[in-house]
Computed example of a mutant assay.
Amino acid sequence: MTFESQPTRPFVRSSENKMVAGVCAGVAEYSNLDVNLVRALTVVGALISFGTVALVYIAAWMLMPQA
Rank of each mutant, 00 (worst) to 15 (best):
K18W: 11
N36E: 12
E16W: 02
V38D: 02
E16N: 11
S49H: 04
T42H: 05
G51P: 07
S49D: 04
F3D: 14
R39H: 05
N17I: 03
F3R: 10
V53P: 01
N32S: 11
T52R: 11
C24W: 03
E16R: 10
G51D: 06
L41E: 04
L41D: 05
P10T: 14
L63F: 14
A54L: 15
L41I: 03
S14D: 15
K18G: 04
A54W: 13
A28L: 05
M62H: 10
T2R: 13
N17T: 07
L41C: 08
T42S: 01
R13S: 13
T52I: 10
Q66N: 10
V53C: 03
V53L: 11
N32A: 10
L63D: 00
V44R: 01
R13M: 15
D34P: 01
A60K: 11
F3W: 03
V35R: 08
A40I: 04
F50A: 09
G51Y: 02
A40T: 02
I48A: 12
A40F: 04
T52H: 09
V20N: 07
R13T: 10
F50T: 00
A46S: 13
P7M: 13
G22L: 03
A54Q: 07
L55E: 00
R9Q: 15
A46E: 02
V20L: 15
S49T: 15
A21Y: 06
V53E: 02
M64E: 01
T2M: 12
M62C: 14
V43C: 02
E4N: 14
Y30N: 06
N17Y: 09
M19E: 12
A25C: 02
V53S: 03
L33R: 12
Y57I: 10
V12W: 05
R39T: 04
S14M: 11
V53T: 12
N17W: 05
P65H: 12
T2C: 11
T2H: 11
A25Q: 06
E4M: 14
W61H: 12
L41Q: 09
K18L: 14
M19I: 14
E16T: 10
I58C: 01
M1S: 14
P10W: 06
I58P: 01
G26V: 05
T8V: 13
D34W: 00
E16S: 12
T8H: 06
M62V: 14
N36R: 06
N17L: 06
T2N: 12
A59W: 13
F3Q: 10
E29D: 13
P65I: 14
V56C: 11
W61S: 10
P10M: 11
R39C: 05
M64D: 07
F50H: 03
E29Y: 01
S31R: 09
V56Q: 10
T2V: 15
N32P: 00
P7S: 12
Q66T: 14
L41F: 05
V38L: 07
N32M: 06
R9G: 09
A25P: 03
K18S: 13
A60M: 15
K18E: 08
M1Y: 08
F3A: 14
V53R: 01
A46M: 07
A21I: 00
E16Y: 01
F50I: 05
V56P: 04
C24H: 07
A54V: 00
G51C: 09
V23S: 06
F50Y: 03
S15H: 09
L55V: 08
S49A: 07
S49N: 04
